[in-house]
Amino acid sequence: MSATTNYPHGHGASILRAHGSRTIEDSAAYLASSLRPDMHILDVGCGPGTITADFASRVPQGRVVGVDQASGVLDKARAHAAERGVSNVEFAQADIYNLAYPDASFDVVHAHQVLQYLEDPMRALRELKRVAKPGGIVAVREADYSGFAWYPTIEGLDEWRDLYHKVGRGNGGEPDAGRRVLSWALAAGFPRESITATTSTWCYSTDDTRSWWSGIWQERLLQSEFRTTAISKGHATQEKVEELAKAWKEWSSAEDGWFVLLHGEILCRV
């Protein structure tokens, strides 16, 4: 099973816009203080490579490899790294369950919002552990959809979350992965004393960030593979996804609108 088999979003414009905004500061701050200039890092599920390039800038005497199952998005990652002038980075297509690297190859193995789409996250974690060096780190951060909160209360957003759970779990994934990453790491064989579990959030509350986040979800509901999957699997109708997109637009227009995304994080020492 490959990582993209269960990926419900595809790699359309709204997806790349969201993923392309991510940085170490907002998506891997829990790991940042552990980085050293000479580290070798594997970024699994790197997408358009913005976090990967950030890693490369933090390890100028080291090397970073970004891998993703979707070959097309890797061209975006290479272009981004070239635009930033980052040379100590490379990108390759890979399957998270069968990484083409020897045991103990990397000081840090990182995955951001990847395990939630997998049928067997424990197997994936065992593979991430395999390619990490003794004394190295496996770092994982996952969203937790049931932990999302927003204001004002809009009925359509509750329905949107219910739909997301149906689509994600129907594809074999787990949208509430954030609360499970510690449990998954234990099941994968990491000793409890080797794991540091933390949380962090994204918050959208300004006019600009509300418009951006709402626009991403309106587009996903109306144009992305998420919409196609939701309708084809019988989780929603065209009329329903249009209704939910209007709910997102209504939320974004509220001056007191606020949306917070909970993430669970683990740093596992190997």
Rank of each mutant, 00 (worst) to 15 (best):
R130N: 10
S57Y: 03
G49Q: 01
Q223V: 07
F148L: 13
T5W: 09
V140R: 02
H9R: 11
E119G: 14
G49Y: 01
L186S: 04
V44Y: 07
Q223N: 10
A100R: 13
E159R: 14
W212N: 12
I15K: 03
R126C: 01
K240L: 09
E119S: 14
H9S: 08
C268A: 15
T206Y: 09
F91C: 06
E119N: 10
G178D: 09
S253D: 13
A111V: 04
R84K: 13
W217G: 00
E243M: 05
L128G: 03
Y101T: 07
M1C: 09
S183E: 15
G215E: 08
S21D: 11
W150P: 01
L99M: 03
H9A: 08
N88P: 00
A18N: 15
E239H: 11
T199W: 12
V64E: 07
G62I: 06
P175E: 04
Y151M: 12
D208I: 13
G47V: 07
S211C: 08
E159N: 08
L244K: 01
F91P: 02
A247R: 04
P175V: 03
S57I: 10
D158E: 13
L118R: 00
S87D: 06
F259Q: 08
E243A: 10
Y7T: 02
Y145Q: 10
L99S: 01
H19K: 09
T153I: 11
G168A: 14
A132S: 15
F226Y: 03
E250K: 09
H9Y: 15
A70V: 11
